[in-house]
């Protein structure tokens, strides 16, 4: 595990989420979190992290629930698109991750330190009242 204060705040992973832990190089204009170069979305006049870019992109698209409010039942047909340019892989994956969580109600396993940015999102973690919090963020390395 890498130690240090100025680390990227974005989360790595799709089925599970963990800290990026790469050295941060800048701050996101929207969420103010410190992020690394890899988790910076390609924008011309702003510095936006891939997680904020994904949220913005998904909020701008039409919701995928029908007007009746019935949940959408997916049986495939919603996979990620093939990314030919490797530089686009991180930003495209972050967007697909956001869409997949929203559309399928998938709650990833949380193996990262506490992050209020994700407070409104569903994720799964070990919730034990007797747990001895020795990591300052709720995730002790036992």
């Amino acid at each position: 595990m890498t130690t240090g204060l100025d680390r990227c705040a974005c989360k790595r992973g799709f089925f599970t989420l963990r800290d990026c832990d790469r050295p941060a190089t800048t701050a996101c204009d929207l969420c103010s979190r410190r992020v690394c170069d890899e988790h910076l979305a390609p924008r011309v006049q702003a510095r936006v992290c891939v997680e904020c870019a994904a949220r913005q992109a998904e909020e701008a698209t039409t919701p995928s629930e029908p007007p009746t409010g019935a949940p959408v039942v997916h049986r495939g047909g919603h996979g990620p698109e093939a990314v030919v340019d490797p530089e686009q892989a991180t930003v495209r994956t972050a967007r697909y991750r956001r869409r997949y969580y929203d559309d399928h109600g998938y709650e990833p396993m949380w193996w990262a330190s506490h992050d209020s940015y994700w407070a409104g999102d569903g994720y799964r973690w070990h919730d034990d009242d007797d747990f001895d919090d020795d990591d300052g963020g709720g995730f002790g390395d036992s």
Binding site: M1, F15, T16, R18, D19, H74, R75, G76, G77, H78, G79, P80, Y100, H104, Y106, P108, M109, W110, W111, A112, S113, R124, W125, H126, D128, F131, D135, G137, G138, F139, G140, D141, S142
Partner: peptide, 23 residues
């Protein structure tokens, strides 16, 4: 490829974490 993503997500739906740890 969404089929394989669904299967992996479903597999993760069959377990829960037994501890808190920062990976």
């Amino acid at each position: 490829s969404g089929h394989l993503v669904d299967l992996l997500a479903r597999a993760y739906g069959r377990v829960e974490p037994v501890r808190r740890k920062k990976l």
